[in-house]
Design a protein around this nucleic acid. Structure first.
Length: 268
DNA sequence: ATGGTGGTCCTACCA
């Protein structure tokens, strides 16, 4: 048996529920982590997910902005919502997923702040917030990684860590998402918990990997100016279980798409 | 160097 876990920044779950349903019928994941649901908890389309066999749902929502959710074919326990930077933003939810035969694991679903446009924490408080958020995540990383149950970190981390995660390393060093201040922090978070970058375990560098293409690019596909902002990490005891990874790039050309595409891993 | 697009919710804000 293979366990399938997907992540997708959906940029409004209400607007894009038809695309989510299309994705679920194509990929049929056991667990789907969504970011930027952009709705209140009562507005989350739970009944649509339940009809499709996803009976177990955990949401951390706020009106209009951000918001994350875990939808699952298996029961969710120990649901937690971590607060970062005393902001009250809905940017994290975690749950323990009991698969039965396949054991239990914990998923941490994250939506890291995008960080605004100016990559200077003195001039741009959104960038400062992003750096502070990553610093807090670094402190949590070892305990999340060493939980008694195997753990996954996934979501829109809004950082493209390596030169092979962006279309142009040199020019993007000055662009929020690929600055040294951000990539150093992401690498520290990963190192503190000995997390495995599951996407790179399957598709090593120097092959380019992207999960996001800007809406502002008139011909995103031909230009292919992508970045890998979405991630799936495995704690050391879960790392040997990775067997496959797929980025559904096609979803970027579906009608009224998200600017992010879904990423799925198979776990044995 | 600039502006390019899209979602929320109704006036800018966020990405």
């Amino acid at each position: 048996m293979v366990l399938k876990v997907s992540t997708w920044n959906i940029n409004s779950v209400r607007m894009r529920m038809p695309l989510v349903e299309r994705f679920l019928s194509l990929e049929n994941p056991d667990v789907l982590c969504l970011q930027e649901i952009k709705c209140r908890e009562a507005e989350f389309p739970s009944s649509s997910f339940k009809k499709l066999g996803y009976q177990h749902i955990a949401v951390n929502a706020q009106k209009g902005y951000h918001g994350v959710a875990i939808v699952s074919r298996f029961p969710l326990d120990a649901i937690e919502r971590q607060e970062f930077c005393n902001k009250g933003d809905a940017r994290h939810i975690s749950a323990q997923i009991d698969t039965g035969d396949h054991g239990s694991f914990i998923v941490h679903n994250l939506y890291v702040p995008a960080g605004g446009d100016i990559p200077d924490p003195g001039l741009n408080e959104k960038f400062l917030h992003k750096l502070n958020f990553l610093d807090e995540l670094k402190l949590l990383s070892p305990s999340w990684s060493s939980a008694t149950v195997p753990s996954i970190i996934t979501g829109d981390l809004n950082v493209a860590p390596s030169e092979f995660d962006v279309w142009n390393h040199k020019s993007l060093l000055k662009v929020v998402s690929h600055t040294t201040e951000e990539t150093r922090r992401l690498n520290e978070i990963m190192a503190r918990g000995n997390w495995l970058d599951a996407m790179r375990a399957i598709t090593p560098e120097p092959e380019k990997l992207y999960t996001w293409w800007s809406y502002r690019s008139p011909d995103w596909s031909a230009a292919n100016k992508g970045r890998r902002l979405d991630h799936i990490w495995l704690c050391p005891k879960y790392a040997p279980n990775i067997s496959a990874m797929r980025i559904l790039k096609d979803a970027r050309s579906w009608e009224k798409p998200s600017d992010h595409v879904p990423v799925t891993i198979d776990l044995t």
